[in-house]
Amino acid sequence: MSSLTSSLPRADGAGARAARWGLYLILLLFAVWYLLPLVVMVSTSFKSLDEIRTGSLLSLPRDISTDAWSYAWTNACIGADCRGMAPYFLNSVIIVVPAVIISTLFGALNGYALTKWRFRGANLVFAMILFGSFLPSQVILLPMAQTLGFLGLAGTAGGLILVHVVYGLAFTTLFFRNYYVSIPDDLVKAATIDGAGFFQIFTKIMLPLSLPIMVVTIIWQFTQIWNDFLFGASFAAGGAQPVTVALNNLVNTTTGVKQYNVDMAAAMIAGLPTLVVYALAGKYFIRGLTAGSVKG
């Protein structure tokens, strides 16, 4: 990707130089604005309560203390449960891993079937699945709660996995479908003549070609499911709640002294996994975002 204007000559002279300085200044100011909440969060989480009270919002911690982090991880009270964020973090992991794997797998299969083995009505099926990605979750909260109760999954991790798989299908199918559309049909024809069947073509040819979109999809699903709050708050009870719900409960606990440093450490704990993934594979995350925007 080269800059749109890279083919034009650079302007010279004092005016142009001043303009460039202004340009960088604006961009840096925006960077500061975007970074501010993160900086506040990180620095506060390393401060002691005393320092928070005496210091200012933006001051960096004088002596870095990890007490808030370890307290948030093991001792903080979420409601009446004072085991810290750790068990909830684990809950999220237990929910996220299978949900991501299952929804990605189904997305890949759907994308493959809908592009390479088109049946009558395939477009309609895809459009109907796609609509799910825009569905306001509020419409399905109540029936879902009832259904989970009926299935005996109410309040469990299994229930949340089901929910995330179902409502992730729209995105994963979209990603894979749009990717597979660009893989030539001739490959499938050639493989058919070579004697490969439906699943052999999938496993031996399509999947090995799918690595980039696989990464995009996994990262997207991971981020979505890890960051989910509404489903977690609606369908998970007590000890099975995911980390975002726990964080919200922790922050909104009104009893006792407000420990802002613990709040911030807990927020960082809840946010770190997706932040790390973003730092490591931001490129794929962005690709997911733009693909998820139904831009094809």
């Binding site: 030539p184 001739d186 490959l187 024809k189 050639a190 493989a191 058919t192 003549i193 070579d194 004697g195 490969a196 031996k204 040819i205 090995p208 070609l209």
Partner: peptide, 27 residues
Amino acid sequence: KDRDIAMVFQSYALYPNMTVARNIGFS
């Protein structure tokens, strides 16, 4: 696969993930 025919495509349709040898030997 049971017609005993072989086909060469305009786009060649080589399997990008496989080596030339495996492409040839895939059938």
